[in-house]
Design a protein around this nucleic acid. Structure first.
Lengths: 199, 199
DNA sequence: TTAGGACATTGAACACCGTTCAGGAATGTA
DNA sequence: TACATTCCTGAACGGTGTTCAATGTCCTAA
């Protein structure tokens, strides 16, 4: 009854647009995304974008989805290569990997937090899932350090440590305010995690 | 030669616009600032804004200047009321005061970091001065904890601690991601600072 | 007092933005 | 072939910050 052999084309356009948007965000930041520019580059009309995404925020979320997965893999790899190190060293390895990813993909990384989601649109499920996966990686070394935690303590420490490292990376890469050299940032992270996870 | 008794009117318009802009940012966030709305409320033409500010970013910086001063006073007061407490407790008092200010003035506080300053415009001098003032308050207890620091160590610790607390407050107030109750955030901050500043 | 000039003020116009939607194109089915 | 359904188009809409020639205002100097 219905003409249903075009989902392939749909998905192709989706991917093309996501590719182009990702390239723009990577090199010039989220604020440089233009619907018209994207349409011209993709060889379609502006309206076609809205056939495939709800709006530009939806497109941004598609880009962020890729970034989130790459970030998760990057941190996972870093800790996997140190599977026999102490819990503290594994925490440091993850945090330094987080710093490395952010500093090598500054615009893509910032887009994860700058995307406009205040309005009715609620956070996509995979956003929370991906964040949960990241948190569970952090929680593993913490559980070794605290074999008998109070209820919710591990979760609280996980969030606290992630937020702290995130803050150091965020303000550290914001050169307009602090301009801290990258090796200094690693030193800050090592210092913090060593102290916090000391026996 | 020149007509020079209107700086009063200039300053009056500056203040009026800053007042109105501050009210908007306070209640609806930085993104809700509209040049036309402001002009209508101030009883002037849109162009008049540009006689008094370089652009809307300049106006935002004026609002942020006020916020920065209030934030500094808030943190100063908090630590002044605990002048005889231990260095660690004073660090905690400052951090909790920072959290309190951010949670009671969420939009004004976010505007401090969301303002667009990437383009040619360089950071105003008072921005760095105010930040330096805040850092020096944090550094005082740290110097007591480390009487013989290596060169630059105090500065590094100051930035690390500020960034960490900032990260906890930032992600903690971002309800879309974490939604941590405020007393839990205080717990996280206490935990972090206690561990980091332990002897 | 008056003519001149240096500013302030105005608001229409400009360039740009994301988003919409009536109409044409394309492709399936009967 | 006739129809139904979807896709695609791009001009148009309402919004944004910013500009600038024209006008107004007011002090200074003659």
């Amino acid at each position: 009854m219905m003409a249903r052999d075009t989902p392939q084309k749909r998905d192709a356009l989706r991917e093309t647009l996501t590719d182009l948007a990702e390239a723009h965000v990577r090199s010039d930041g989220l604020a440089s995304l233009r619907a018209r520019t994207l349409a011209k580059e993709a060889g379609c009309a502006v309206g076609a974008i809205y056939n495939v995404f709800d709006d530009m925020t939806g497109l941004t979320l598609a880009v962020n989805g890729r970034t989130f997965r790459r970030l998760g893999a990057h941190v996972s790899d870093a800790v996997a290569q140190k599977s026999d190190a102490s819990p503290t060293d594994r925490l440091i390895a993850m945090a330094v990997a987080y710093l490395g990813f952010a500093s090598e993909n500054p615009h893509l990384w910032r887009s994860l937090f700058d995307v406009e989601m205040s309005n009715d649109r609620d956070v996509p499920a995979w956003y929370l899932e991906e964040l949960g996966r990241l948190f569970s990686i952090i929680a593993a070394p913490l559980k070794e350090l605290h074999p008998n935690p109070a209820p919710g303590e591990i979760d609280l420490m996980t969030r606290a440590l992630f937020s702290s490292v995130h803050g150091i990376v965020l303000l550290g890469l914001e050169n307009r305010i602090s301009a801290v050299p990258k090796d200094r940032l690693e030193g800050m992270i090592e210092y913090l995690l060593t102290r916090v996870s000391a026996p």
